[in-house]
Amino acid sequence: MMTWKNQTFKSGFILLGIFDQSPTHAFLFSLVLGIFTVAFMGNTAMVVLIYLDSQLHTPMYFLLSQLSLMDLMLICTTVPKMALNYLSGKKSISVAGCGTQIFFYVSLLGSECFLLAVMAYDRYVAICHPLRYPILMRPKICRLMAASSWLLGSFDGIIEVAVALSFSYCGAREIPHFFCDVPALLTLSCTNTSTFERMIFICCIIMLLFPVAVIGASYTRVILAVISMGSGEGRRKAFTTCSSHLMVVGMYYGAAMFIYMRPTSDRSPTQDKMVSAFYTILTPMLNPLIYSLRNKEVSRAFMKVLGKGKSRE
């Protein structure tokens, strides 16, 4: 077994990818590159705007900047390697590269799960307990909750990459995916991975269902509070902010549950690739658009930066 593992670590894996060289797939590949460009620029702009504009130095926008940073890192974990393999005609990935993808991918997914729950709690406190908001969401607590999201996600990433790469892998080592995803990698294992798969399922319950419960409880209270508001303008503003967050939550959690909470026997490589492409490529593009287009303060900050740029010219 040790000999096989040494051989595996020297030779790495083959990523079968999602595109071939047909004209249709060449167009789809160009479309993915376009989406990647929009996602990269959109999330970078959100992080920079929130950092530069002092009026956006609030808990809500700090947490939003962390979400954009996670999305930026997530899309950079998968798309550049996929594009390089497609353009070069090579499909190989080293074991170190595969482990790196698994670590960042799993860590960022887990971190976003917890961060979205923190964002829901932030909206709950802001709307249901506005007088206590400066105390309950003071900068130190806000930074602590964000850091906890990063750390919990990273802890899950370390465990999954350590266990996944400890297995022996057989055959042609061809991963039926466009990146090193743990469920796809486990299909190549020579050893019994059922215990590890059960562990992943339990982790998903904790990292998906627990935050969903927090989000559900928070927004139930928020909706009740918003309905009872006397001010129509306050009700509209609260619904706009919360609906943006709920849209992101629905897209993100729905896709993640579809991938990671189904038994291996029910998995289809094609379905997994399509759904993974949705929430690793498309969702990071939609997040900044959803928040910025529906948010006057972000739009104002963007126009302010543009105005400064034009005045310098």
Rank of each mutant, 00 (worst) to 15 (best):
residue 84 L to W: 15
residue 39 A to P: 03
residue 63 L to E: 13
residue 26 A to H: 11
residue 4 W to C: 08
residue 15 L to A: 02
residue 92 S to Q: 09
residue 105 Y to T: 09
residue 61 Y to A: 02
residue 88 S to P: 09
residue 26 A to G: 03
residue 20 D to P: 06
residue 45 A to N: 06
residue 62 F to Y: 08
residue 81 K to G: 10
residue 106 V to M: 11
residue 55 Q to K: 11
residue 25 H to V: 05
residue 71 D to T: 09
residue 48 V to A: 00
residue 65 S to G: 04
residue 13 F to G: 06
residue 81 K to H: 10
residue 81 K to P: 00
residue 40 F to H: 04
residue 42 G to I: 07
residue 33 L to A: 06
residue 80 P to F: 06
residue 68 S to H: 09
residue 77 T to Q: 01
residue 76 C to E: 06
residue 70 M to R: 07
residue 90 K to L: 15
residue 65 S to W: 02
residue 53 D to M: 05
residue 100 T to G: 15
residue 53 D to Q: 05
residue 63 L to Q: 14
residue 26 A to I: 14
residue 74 L to P: 04
residue 11 S to K: 07
residue 70 M to G: 08
residue 5 K to E: 07
residue 105 Y to A: 04
residue 65 S to N: 09
residue 69 L to K: 02
residue 35 I to C: 01
residue 74 L to H: 08
residue 5 K to T: 11
residue 55 Q to I: 05
residue 47 V to H: 00
residue 20 D to I: 10
residue 11 S to A: 14
residue 22 S to M: 06
residue 83 A to Y: 02
residue 49 L to E: 00
residue 33 L to C: 14
residue 34 G to W: 07
residue 94 S to M: 10
residue 16 L to F: 06
residue 16 L to R: 08
residue 24 T to W: 11
residue 78 T to D: 05
residue 37 T to I: 03
residue 49 L to V: 03
